[in-house]
């Protein structure tokens, strides 16, 4: 492309400046605060302080992983079935899947309290049959439900997208060559949908691990995940340095998870090409 190099540099300069100032510099700040104390002197205390929260980290990863797996189990068949319905129904259905994402997730999470509460919708319904109220709120299950509910669309949409873009002739070829329906799903459709599944897993796992609102509302403050701890350090305890150290660890941990996931996709992709 013929374009004067000065012009290109002029176009690039504002964004490069912006990303250095507001993407790179903030990350350096996290590292700076993590390794200094209140007076600004260098210290390892914050990093050592992390060890108190290792069990919280493991718990958060556990919750995130369970929510992600449940999302995948719900979303995969949904996306598969949806991709096989009529075109106009698909368009409406995709719109309906996206709609909740555009509403305040705070209120949507809060209204689960109306549904699950001690005198909530489900318990009032059960009461009609003389069943005693069941405690559903402030349990691990309620927190998982909140995560699955909030992040399910992020799993559905990428999987649905790969399902619709899938080359039908490959599936037909497999069937022509005598492949049974289940065998076809296992050998053709699932490998071809891996990229969508991976981006779905990322989009559900990252916000689930780091959430703090869902645990506060549906967990009633009894379940403390790493997001709650970090939020507490910044908004109530005012210990920015420990908060920064915890954020740094969270960031590194998620980058490692994404890296591992990326590694798996690459090898899977090669596998599907070989096949």
């Amino acid at each position: 492309m013929k374009r004067s190099p000065i012009l290109t540099k002029l176009i690039n300069a504002p964004y490069i400046l912006w990303s250095v100032l507001f993407i790179i510099a903030p990350l350096i700040m996290v590292i700076y605060y993590a390794f200094t104390d209140r007076t600004g002197a260098f210290t390892f205390d914050n990093v050592k302080g992390i060890s108190d929260y290792l069990s919280t980290f493991i718990l958060s990863v556990g919750y995130g992983a369970i929510a992600t797996v449940i999302c995948l189990l719900i979303a995969y068949p949904f996306a598969y079935f949806l991709a096989h319905t009529g075109a106009s129904f698909q368009r409406t259905a995709v719109m309906l899947v996206m709609l909740p994402m555009w509403m305040s997730f705070l209120i949507r999470t809060y209204s689960w309290m109306t549904i699950l509460g001690e005198s909530g919708v489900i318990n009032s319904f059960l009461g009609l049959f003389g069943i005693d109220p069941v405690t559903m709120l402030n349990t691990p299950a309620a927190v998982i439900l909140g995560m699955v509910y909030n992040f399910l669309p992020y799993m559905i949409l990428p999987i649905y997208t790969v399902m619709t873009k899938m080359d039908v002739s490959l599936i037909e070829a497999a069937q022509d060559l005598g492949c049974g329906k289940l065998h076809c799903i296992r050998k053709v459709i699932i490998p071809l949908s891996v990229p969508g599944v991976v981006s779905g897993i990322t989009m559900v796992f990252v916000p689930s691990v780091s959430t703090f609102y869902i645990t506060q509302k549906l967990g009633g403050g009894q379940i403390n995940l790493i997001g709650d701890v970090i939020e507490g350090q910044f908004q109530t305890a005012n210990n920015y340095n420990l908060g920064a150290a915890l954020s740094l660890l969270l960031m590194v941990m998620i980058l490692i998870c994404l890296g591992v996931l990326g590694y798996f996709t690459d090898s899977e992709d090669e596998g599907s090409v070989l096949m």
Binding site: V30, S247, L250
Partner: peptide, 9 residues
Amino acid sequence: MNPEIVTGI
């Protein structure tokens, strides 16, 4: 890629 809470902080 970063969790929103880390970006915010």
